[in-house]
Design a protein around this nucleic acid. Structure first.
Lengths: 340, 340
DNA sequence: TTGAAAGCGATACCAT
DNA sequence: ATGGTATCGCTTTCAA
């Protein structure tokens, strides 16, 4: 028999027709055998011949042709930001992808590089995904949702701080994080609270609501809030620390643990005592925070598991009319350590 | 009983036929207009009618149908690990994705969750990608490469420490990192060097060659190497630090900056002076390292830009026979700071 | 138990 | 300047 499948530069890709020919049956039979179609009974010898033929040719079905015929795909489109989000959230998205694959969806991460909301939605729609799970940092317009639904998407779901007209929403209310940090600092007796807002673009979807959360809690208590723009580099942190005393603040909530570490270092280098002169709180409860001195107080964020999210997506796909709006998907609580 | 899903109660997904009908032309004309086919000339009024019809119906072409007809796709498949790699490498992969999209490829990140190398390759082949860019941490067998090429992939490229029979290789030799760290420590007069090997699975593709790099440099100098398994958590680090003095080491290369930070903290907490009693070197040159005290010495890794990689992929796609093996894609040099 | 044939949606050749 | 139509690879009635 054939030893080494001699495939020169231009050997054509084997199709089910080739398998059928080699096995001496029709394409229909090939399909039946390879898909274990239970509605049809094929004799065992035939099955074997088909399988052997497929094996020998190295036949692999063509997903596009299959889903074209089927009229639907199992693609879940997961638009990705072009900027790196934090490690916590990054891990979470990874988990979601996992879980969706475990439910037999094909996860397509689509980087929508500089496309506007509507262009992006159009590009996504070309893939005819059965569902779109759009993280909060991705722009998605009501019109974009329409385009996607019109293109056959059973589920268009936003996963993040805000909802979009027409889409199912899995709301993760970032304000709770700011609120938790603020409550903690107020309880510690702080009355003038700075809030670091990352200068990096694309993070505002997270940082704005966190700031709003702080604002609400702090003003309700009659204390002061000061937004502080800072980039994730030493210069920016040093500059901020340099003018710290003019700001007259006695505490700062620094967006997340990474920014907090950066700022805390800069404050210390500027001779400002933490937590004596200024309390510092981060967020995300990264391992790192426990290693710092003083140990970094943080807001622990309880994200849903990837499985939960995947199952919600699956539910909406199966029952697009069903209610799937959820608001209880995120919890936040402070972990006080030494920096506050 | 199970009839064709009627696309629910609402309107069916519009096809080019619908556009043609509404515009009063044939499907061919629709295709010509919407693709700006230059070989055919369509009158301006007709063009307008077609475009308006498409707009009105919210028509979006069906990517699967198109690529089925075309006989090829612009899909670049990027298998993803199910474990988070470091932040440096993660950012790099993100950049690659960017750059590929800029070259008009559709990047599909495919999480191959617990599939064996051959099953995974088969699953990827179903999507008929024009190229597969497989990061080093992904298992890819020679047989898998065959399957992919047979399915029409013009380029199967490994991106990582090792090469795979049949695939183009963009080799990033991790040994250089270990070698750089070792050379630095030897130069500092250290003679007994520990090497942290992450306990986390999936990182061995990186950690093994790094260890090998250290080993080669150190044994050549007649000094001692000691592999040290450590997980990325405080307990594991503390345990290692607890038995440090028995180990009789005067330096440690801690895989990357994250593990280095963790271990350095544990050593300090165990009363071991850094760098006096033990020098510590990390890798990746993360911002974090500059914030620690003592400042963390590190190996700066020069990864290629995403654009370089994307262009290499593109080149192989256009000329699959051309040579594209590259070994000069990574450079490493030590940045001495205070911890060594 | 198997096969013939009708599409799924888009494109490109060949007529008109 | 347009339209008819074969075709890509696969699934699934309906017939034999």
């Amino acid at each position: 028999m054939s030893q080494t499948p001699k495939q020169s530069a231009d050997s054509p890709v084997p199709t089910s027709t080739d398998v059928a020919r080699l096995a001496g049956v029709s394409r229909a039979t090939v399909s039946y055998v390879l898909n274990n179609t239970s509605a049809v009974r094929i004799s065992e010898p035939t099955r074997r011949r088909v399988r052997e033929a497929a094996e020998e040719l190295g036949y692999v079905p063509h997903a596009a042709a299959r889903s074209l015929r089927a009229g639907h795909s199992r693609i879940v489109l997961l638009p990705t930001a072009h900027i790196p989000v934090g490690p916590l959230y990054g891990r979470f998205l990874n988990e979601v992808q996992w879980a969706l694959r475990a439910l037999d969806y094909t996860v397509v991460q689509y980087g929508s590089l500089g496309l506007g909301a509507d262009e992006a939605a159009r590009a996504w729609a070309e893939l005819r995904p059965v569902a779109v799970l759009s993280p909060g940092e991705i722009a998605l317009s009501p019109h974009g949702v329409q385009v996607l639904k019109r293109s056959g998407a059973k589920a268009v779901i936003t996963l993040g701080p805000q909802r979009v007209e027409g889409a199912h929403a899995l709301v993760m209310d970032q304000r709770a994080i700011g609120a938790a940090a603020a409550a903690h600092l107020l309880e510690r007796g702080r009355r003038a609270i700075g809030v670091v807002v990352p200068a990096e673009e694309g993070l505002d979807m997270f940082s704005r609501p966190r700031l709003a959360g702080v604002r609400k809690a702090v003003t309700a208590a009659g204390a002061r809030v000061e937004p502080l723009t800072m980039a994730y580099d030493e210069e920016s942190a040093a500059a901020l620390a340099g003018r710290w005393r003019e700001l007259g603040l006695d505490a700062v909530y620094a967006y997340n643990d990474e920014y907090a570490q950066l700022l805390m270092r800069a404050l210390q280098d500027a001779g400002i005592d933490v937590p004596g002169e200024c309390a510092v709180v981060g967020a995300d409860d990264l391992l790192m925070g426990k290693l710092l001195r003083p140990r970094l107080s943080t807001v622990h964020i309880e994200l849903p598991t990837g499985r939960e999210i995947a199952e919600l997506v699956d539910r909406v796909v199966r029952d697009p009319e069903g209610e799937a709006e959820r608001h209880d998907l995120m919890a936040a609580h402070t972990i006080p350590r030494e920096s506050s």
